[in-house]
Amino acid sequence: MNPGGKRFYLVDGEILPEAILKTAMVNEMLAKGEVAKVSEAVEIVGLSRSAYYKYKDGVLPFRESGRTSIISVSLMLEHHPGILSRVLNTVAAVDGNILTINQSVPEKGLAPVSLVMDTSQMSVDVPRLLSELRQLTGVRTAQLVGDSEKK
């Protein structure tokens, strides 16, 4: 039980009432800067201002729930042209946001690389990203070395 506290649910958007879905659309339009005013956004999606204000603070897409996940990944890459580029393209393809890159000088044909990235907008989970990185030609290892959730 959670007496007096907020309760959150993960609900498939297809079963939500239209007003809730449209409220989420308005919030997204405002966050992306697609519109400047609430009145403009509610008119576009066909929602009353009163309905929007009733739900606006309680409706957010799951991935934008105010959490940012920062992870550190350690990689060992073969010293050949284009391998780091393939790693970066793979992260970008799943909407990962790289914050820092550190690559050491290669020794014995291998270059250690560490990446710190924000995974809050990623379209796949971290284990899936690591699996995809490990499958790239020239990537010897890819492992999670740390993560932190920022609320």
Results as ranks from 00 to 15, higher is better:
Pro127Trp: 08
Arg134Trp: 08
Arg140Ala: 02
Val145Thr: 15
Val116Arg: 10
Val87Asn: 03
Val113Asn: 10
Thr119Pro: 13
Val94Ser: 03
Asp147Gly: 15
Ala93Met: 02
Ala142His: 14
Ser120Arg: 09
Ser104Leu: 14
Ile101Gly: 10
Ser131Cys: 02
Leu115Tyr: 05
Val105Thr: 08
Glu107Gly: 09
Val94Trp: 05
Val124Trp: 01
Val124Asn: 09
Lys108Val: 06
Gln121Ser: 12
Thr141Phe: 03
Pro106Val: 14
Asp118Gly: 05
Gly146Ser: 11
Met122Leu: 05
Ala93His: 12
Pro112Tyr: 10
Gln103Ser: 14
Asp147Glu: 15
Asn102Asp: 04
Gln135Glu: 15
Ser120Trp: 04
Arg140Gly: 04
Leu129Ile: 13
Ser104Cys: 09
Leu99His: 07
Val139Ile: 07
Gly138Cys: 06
Ile98Leu: 04
Gly96Pro: 05
Thr141Arg: 14
Ile98Phe: 00
Leu115Asn: 04
Val139Leu: 11
Gly138Arg: 05
Val126Thr: 15
Asn89Lys: 13
Ser104Glu: 13
Gln103Val: 05
Val145Arg: 11
Lys108Leu: 12
Ser120Thr: 07
Ala93Ile: 07
Ala111Pro: 00
Arg128Gly: 01
Thr141Lys: 12
Met122Lys: 11
Ser114Asp: 05
Thr100Ser: 07
Val116His: 10
Leu144Cys: 03
Gln135Arg: 15
Asn97His: 04
Thr100Pro: 01
Ser131Ala: 12
Ser148Ile: 00
Asp125Ala: 02
